[in-house]
């Protein structure tokens, strides 16, 4: 009985170890009685053996294998170094970006809020509490009549710029506030102007 394409596929599956046991038993029975099928199996086995020799001949020599290992490990080391370098560059870049953003924001704020910046400058130069908080020098806060019929007290800093306003219904209230404010400023300055005396000097 001639061997057809399905039989060859069956034999190939058998040789590849992919044929289920139930089908193997049927195949063995056929191989026992069909000589053509048996010959085909032998032919497939022989072809496979030749291919095995061919594939084995493709295996590399020890020298080329050692060279390959060296290349792979060298490449791996290079990749690790590159990754470390990239990580450092990322960190440095992030820090630089933060610093630049901080300086840019400071410069932008300096233009728009001079008093804010002034206060910071005074504070950092070690000025008095009064200077440090508001940049206020002890000045009389003049009270003026507002157009709406209310009395407004403007609080000015050392450069004469208005830094706060307060409205009052009567002139008396406004003057009272201005006087209190002036007194408060005066007492504040007096406290700070007294030279520090070491406690030990009194004894």
């Amino acid at each position: 009985m001639a061997v057809n394409d399905n039989d060859v596929e069956l034999l190939e599956s058998y040789l590849d170890g992919e044929l289920p046991m139930s089908e193997c038993e049927g195949l063995w029975r056929r191989l026992a009685v069909e000589s053509e099928l048996s010959k085909e199996l032998d032919r497939l086995r022989a072809d496979g053996a030749v291919r095995q020799i061919v594939f084995s001949s493709l295996e590399p020599s020890d020298e080329s294998l050692a060279q390959l290992h060296r290349n792979i490990f060298k490449g791996a080391r290079r990749q690790t170094l590159q990754a470390t370098y990239n990580r450092y560059v990322r960190v440095i870049g992030t820090v630089a970006a933060c610093l630049m953003f901080g300086f840019a924001f400071g410069w932008w704020g300096h233009d728009r809020y001079p008093n804010f910046a002034h206060g910071w400058i005074n504070g950092s130069s070690g000025g008095s509490m009064a200077d440090m908080g508001l940049g206020i020098t002890p000045v009389r806060a003049p009270a003026v009549a507002a157009p709406t019929g209310k009395y407004v007290v403007n609080v000015r800093d050392g450069s004469g710029q208005v830094i706060a306003t307060q409205q009052f219904d009567t002139f008396e209230e406004a003057r009272q506030f201005a006087d209190d404010f002036a007194k408060s400023q005066a007492s504040h300055s007096a406290t700070h102007d007294v030279p520090a005396v070491p406690v030990g000097d009194k004894f």
């Binding site: 084995s56 493709l58 080329s64 060279q67 792979i72």
Partner: peptide, 27 residues
């Protein structure tokens, strides 16, 4: 790598370097 080099050699034949294929795969 030894068997992989043989596999790569069998697949790419003489159209590419099997060493390069295996090295790139491992990389």
């Amino acid at each position: 790598s030894k068997r992989m080099l043989a596999v790569a050699r069998a697949i790419v034949g003489n159209r590419a370097s099997p060493e390069d294929v295996v090295q790139q795969a491992f990389m």
